[in-house]
Design a protein around this nucleic acid. Sequence first.
DNA 1: GCCTGTCTGTAACCAATGTTACTGTATATC
DNA 2: GATATACAGTAACATTGGTTACAGACAGGC
Lengths: 210, 210
Amino acid sequence: MIQELKEGYGHVFEDALINEILQVGTFKEIPEGFKLMEIGHYVKAMPLLVSGAIKVYREDNDGNELLLYYLEKGDTCSMTLTCCMGDAKSEVRAVAETDAKLIMIPVQKMEEWTAKYKSWRNFVFESYHSRLNELLNTLDSIAFDKMDMRLVGYLKEKARINNGDIVQNTHQEIAYELHSSRVVISRLLKKLEQMGKIELHRNYIKLLQL
Amino acid sequence: MIQELKEGYGHVFEDALINEILQVGTFKEIPEGFKLMEIGHYVKAMPLLVSGAIKVYREDNDGNELLLYYLEKGDTCSMTLTCCMGDAKSEVRAVAETDAKLIMIPVQKMEEWTAKYKSWRNFVFESYHSRLNELLNTLDSIAFDKMDMRLVGYLKEKARINNGDIVQNTHQEIAYELHSSRVVISRLLKKLEQMGKIELHRNYIKLLQL
DNA sequence: GCCTGTCTGTAACCAATGTTACTGTATATC
DNA sequence: GATATACAGTAACATTGGTTACAGACAGGC
């Protein structure tokens, strides 16, 4: 755990804090698809992401889904922060998009560290800032963009997260994440293929020049 | 300023903090329509809202507008928080929806107080929590609701903010805030009137039973 | 009164998206 | 290889929302 922590957070946290984390944190490896957080559940630990990617999304009462954003190395879940501090239920769901490694911090340390370490405060506020901005970007794309632009953005982001030019999803899965329907997504993907921007295959899509 | 502060925040902040606020904060009264924050500008002070309501909204590069949420008595602007700490530009615009009174706190105190006062930390985190949730609600309604539901939600919220059952806006103004068009809003409002839920008048709308 | 500008109502039309239904094809399993 | 299942392509259609255009109603200033 030491090397992962130092590599990912050594330049962010002061040494004393690193040591505290080593004492109270627990290292965790989770497989792709592992559900880290469920809507309506209480949260008792805060994750520091060391490697991999976490997908954070929203689901309403009728089962409608919507992708909010991805968390990557060096990120943490602000939603968890607020939930921990306020003793509130989670409003979102978090699932490992790839295999991932994380360090779990017990809730009670957070308040303590916020008072004690400047680097922790910065990290927490920085985290809030990023997440708020990502939410705003998601909102923008839903409110202002048409579905074709949203789809292109989705493909780019997804490929980036998976370090390559391949998106391994069925059209149905993409439709869920964008809160659209399979037929619409197939239609738009076909159009992108005809424009020479992507290559369609069964169960995966190869990005050419988007 | 003392009585406004004690009334609005006396039960939230410890006495020592109240005293500090009295020393460094400045009291400010602003008229309806006053622009508190502009997109792309830096922020140098943080507002504690004592009375009135502030409208926070987003505008993209093409001039498309979208209402995010309202701030009320006891609220502060989390966006400002992040901007101050991170020395970043504002991503949103804030305008007084009604005449309002606020106490402005200089940025440099914030970091200090976060270390020093537990009540301040709670306030800040609570504030983030509320704002994140409000953003999520806005997102939900845009992603999952049709325009008629969004309009009903808008009317309710707007009437609540203005303490009554009257919404004083033209159809065009409502269209801007919901990022729709005047004709669409007029159409839907007419439908609501025919259902007996509202009364339409020139320049204002009276809510009956929504 | 009479203009003028703003606000609202309405019709006709269009584009984007969602829905239903049916097809063919790849893949896995037996 | 035969069968079943999941996936993708496509057509036809419905619905929502946006656009354009125009007419009438109201309010303010003269």
